[in-house]
Design a protein around this nucleic acid. Sequence first.
DNA 1: GGCGCAAACGTAAACGTTTTCATGGCAGCT
DNA 2: AGCTGCCATGAAAACGTTTACGTTTGCGCC
Lengths: 354, 354
Amino acid sequence: MTTKNATIKDVAREAKVSVASVSRVLNGLGGVTPETQKIVREVANRLNYIPDNAARSLITGRTHTIGAVLPDLYGEFFSELIRGIDLAARARGLHLLVSSSHDGVADAAAAVRAMRGRVDGMLILSEYVDAAFLEENLPEKLSAVLLNSPVKSARYPVLNIDNRAGAIAMVQHLIETGHQQVAFISGPKTNFDAQQREKGYRAAMTKHAPGMPLTIVDGNFTEESGYRAGRELLAKKPRPQAVFAANDMMAIGCLYAFKEAGIDVPGDIALAGFDDILIARYITPPLSTVQVRIADLGRIALDRLAALLNPADSTPASVETLGCDIVIRESCGAKKGSVAAPNKPRRSPRPSPT
Amino acid sequence: MTTKNATIKDVAREAKVSVASVSRVLNGLGGVTPETQKIVREVANRLNYIPDNAARSLITGRTHTIGAVLPDLYGEFFSELIRGIDLAARARGLHLLVSSSHDGVADAAAAVRAMRGRVDGMLILSEYVDAAFLEENLPEKLSAVLLNSPVKSARYPVLNIDNRAGAIAMVQHLIETGHQQVAFISGPKTNFDAQQREKGYRAAMTKHAPGMPLTIVDGNFTEESGYRAGRELLAKKPRPQAVFAANDMMAIGCLYAFKEAGIDVPGDIALAGFDDILIARYITPPLSTVQVRIADLGRIALDRLAALLNPADSTPASVETLGCDIVIRESCGAKKGSVAAPNKPRRSPRPSPT
DNA sequence: GGCGCAAACGTAAACGTTTTCATGGCAGCT
DNA sequence: AGCTGCCATGAAAACGTTTACGTTTGCGCC
């Protein structure tokens, strides 16, 4: 009521019991008479008592907080990931400490170290994190789950997006709808997703269009690089029948290049991307792409981490993979589109902030 | 080295000094001989000693963590806001505890209460938070900054987006470029942003196009409601010369309605939105809109909160407002656009996740 | 040499919990 | 009636820091 927050002692005194009993009641440990429980709860409520987390975790050694270490992500990917993690965490009574938008290995190391003692476990998504990094920076007792990482570790579970399977499915679809000659716009060479997507492209071509030459032009995930790649592809002869870009932004850039040259999509050439960013369905023609269920990624990662935290549940560390779905719109020519019907967005891109 | 983390006592014993001295050295409090300091630091390093945050904050009453309580936000708005907050927090050595995507007043209350004792202060963005809510749920000593909130409180600073000024600027621009008759598609009646934007529209019309009738049709921030509004506006006579939608999604829906009816934008009618979501520049024609510097919002909010935490710096609580910029593209007819040049996005919408 | 003073350092209390262990009472059994 | 054992409860230790306060030490000055 006054200036000082109520402590467990205040509750105990007021309820005329010992602090031990208060603790037992509030933690549901049993061994307390129903009447006593009632009194304690009433008093606690009346005093607006909330246990002090610092004291609690000092003695228990648990913080009920998990840390998320993320790179400089943006837009939907970031928000969906956090949403998935946050929801799953809340469902388990865990809190979420976020350290995002760091860049470079030193930055990531600092983030990880700063979390020491503040979290029970960590979710790490960073291209700079490998086995050596973990060895160096992760305290002994901290468990962690790695997202989208090539590392194979006996200690830390890894959860990946199945970029390869997604790419294969899309390429297969393109081929099956009559485009034998599929070209690929690659992402940054050092990017794990980009690598996997390219592998998928190669595998699918080998399997479903054997004998066809592989056409790969370099990109770096930016719209601008997609534009350049598009121009480069148009100059090739024979011109490919379909273009599969390693992400949507490059597909969009590529689309501009095609429009500029008067090439019709999908009439003259089919086009597909990867990610299913929000814009994908709003451009003309709407872009066929590979959708990643990012919120699920976050949720599953947290569930796996939570399992690690529970000493009873001793599932071994493993590498797991989350599938993608291809979503077929008009840009790949497999589907006729109505012209002016407004889309049904999955969610409004900016729900009212207040 | 082994299974247990080193404590300050271990360091003290190993360095043959008292725990007090270790504390003094590691906190840079002075009163310790340089030689002693050196020894302590060496030992601390060797033992890989890191202070226990729980114990530390138990005694100091500070967590060096701030909490962000956010509603169910999405996409750019969410990621930019977090980015702004995170960056500013990191710069101050603060950690960020996030509780997002909650919905409803009970949910928000639970989030706020759960943070008690885990954070030094809070950033709150929620339509359910008013003075009574704070009174009820916020512990005495916690400071907080309210984002985008209509509450006026002597205790808590409020930081708002200047929706009104942004709307005024856009309407003024529309009028100045020759569209006297500007119609408005409103947002949800209960939404604070929406209210302010409508007020801005009214004010600007009264000031810059006196005598012109106000045309307002209802919307609810969804694309679909924008589509309906667009059809409704086309049926009006005289047909308005320009349409200003309270957010971009509605503007997009409205655009579909116009396209469907064969009405050219901006030739037959000018169109503008609010928010500058990423899609805005990708639709045809690119949408003129009002841009909110969301990362700045987060950064400034955190700075204000940090000031509150510092007892020395006693700036009084105040209501502050963050300006918006109008960004003129082609949909309002003030600017001729090149057709196929790829845009330069501010940033890639999905930087490589690994 | 005694005195005072400041600097360096140590002792111990305090923070608010959880948890172990001891205690007392009471019921049920022999 | 006396013993056993269980159950509700309380006292107190422990968690790892910070910090107020007390003690020692060294040193300059009379």
